[in-house]
């Protein structure tokens, strides 16, 4: 069965929401990236908005945008990936209970600290009784959500699945994590990337996602399993943070001289950052052009029909493949 990406959107530190791939970057002088705030009121009532932390706002607004674009009122399933969940509410609740020595802290923060608050809120707003899952597997949170969405469609349980990745970064969190080894050489960030995965035909075809936990990856074999030869790839989007990131050497040597885009230096590193890469892939395939600012090398292509996304942290890798329908 063929599966398509009917609509896509991303809220990020760049002007991505409800738009194409930006032609220039926002300055980004801060030590970590926060999202450019969309006009939330377009999607969420002011009363509800006041109660929502940024991660819920971004998750909900981005979801409602892709559903609107796809012309869908009720998805058959809602599947969300989040690496760290609702950190602001978690921090608020924890701080309050410790400072006030466990004297009845505010329940609202506790209620909203649960990882599935975002998917739950979307269901509540849509009055959607359907399948509702939230995955949290660090930097593979979005990938495992995506695989779940794909299997639901293959299983005939859903025709249209709302699937996305979302994480948040606050000043408090930044102060805690900035010294950690895993953020060395990176700028932490946040964002939301949502999609409607569908059986109905559209421009972008979703070919699959592979998750590999191993020191070594046989990239050619993995691609073959997804039904593609390495030579056929038109464009690569890599999760590199720096120019010469050692962990990406293996992949880059296998991939050779292909047009290569990167994004983490401009939206930041976060657990579900690969959802932003998937949004980029959709936009490039739809528009058949790449703004220069996203290019890691200066190699261009005449066509962008087959786009490969690679992400890696430690010995955990993921590959996602998107192609242009009917070329």
């Amino acid at each position: 069965m063929d599966i398509y990406i009917k609509s896509s959107d991303a809220i990020s530190a760049q002007l991505s929401f409800e738009k194409g791939l930006p032609e220039y970057f926002e300055s980004g002088e801060e030590s970590f990236y926060n999202c450019v705030k969309p006009e939330y009121k377009k999607y969420i009532s002011p009363k509800l908005l006041r109660r929502m932390s940024p991660i819920i706002r971004n998750g909900v607004a981005c979801s409602l945008s892709v559903l609107k674009q796809a012309g869908i009122e009720q998805p058959d399933a809602i599947v969300v990936g989040t690496a760290l969940g609702c950190l602001r509410d978690t921090t608020s609740f924890l701080t309050q209970l410790i400072e006030e020595k466990e004297e009845l802290p505010n329940p609202t923060h506790f209620i909203q600290s649960t990882h599935n608050t975002i998917a739950g809120q979307i269901a509540l707003l849509l009055k959607c009784h359907n399948y509702n899952f939230t995955f949290s597997q660090m930097h593979n949170s979005f990938e495992t959500a995506l695989l779940d969405a794909q299997m639901l469609i293959l299983d005939g349980k859903a025709s249209n699945v709302l699937v996305g990745g979302v994480d948040e970064m606050s000043e408090t969190t930044y102060d805690l994590i900035k010294g950690l080894d895993c953020y060395k050489g990176t700028k932490p960030g946040e964002g939301a990337g949502f999609f409607v995965l569908s059986r109905e035909e559209s421009v972008v075809k979703f070919e699959g996602v592979r998750i590999i936990n191993s020191d070594k990856v046989d990239f050619e074999k993995e691609l073959k399993d997804m039904g593609l030869e390495l030579d056929e790839v038109d464009l690569v989007i890599g999760g590199n943070n720096q120019e010469d990131e050692a962990g990406y050497m293996d992949f880059c040597s296998v991939i050779g001289n292909k047009p290569y885009l990167w994004y983490k230096p401009f939206v930041g590193e976060y657990g579900t950052a690969s959802s932003f890469a998937m949004w980029m892939a959709c936009k490039v395939i739809e528009e058949q052009k790449v703004p220069e600012c996203w290019m890691k090398n200066r190699i261009a292509s005449e066509k962008y029909n087959k786009v490969l996304i690679y992400n890696k942290v430690g010995n955990e890798h993921s590959l996602m493949l998107m192609t242009k329908n009917k070329v």
């Binding site: 690496a83 760290l84 969940g85 649960t114 990882h115 599935n116 998917a119 509702n132 899952f133 939230t134 995955f135 949290s136 597997q137 660090m138 593979n140 949170s141 495992t144 805690l176 994590i177 950690l180 895993c182 998750i211 936990n213 191993s214 657990g271």
Partner: peptide
């Protein structure tokens, strides 16, 4: 903080019992 994310416990268990061909964590 490395042990804080939901996925950390799953990864460590997967490594202990040799179940690393795929691992993920639900939080609903």
């Amino acid at each position: 903080l490395y042990s804080h994310p939901c996925g950390d416990s799953t990864k460590k268990v997967a490594e202990l019992i040799s179940a690393t061909d795929y691992y993920t964590t639900l939080n609903t």
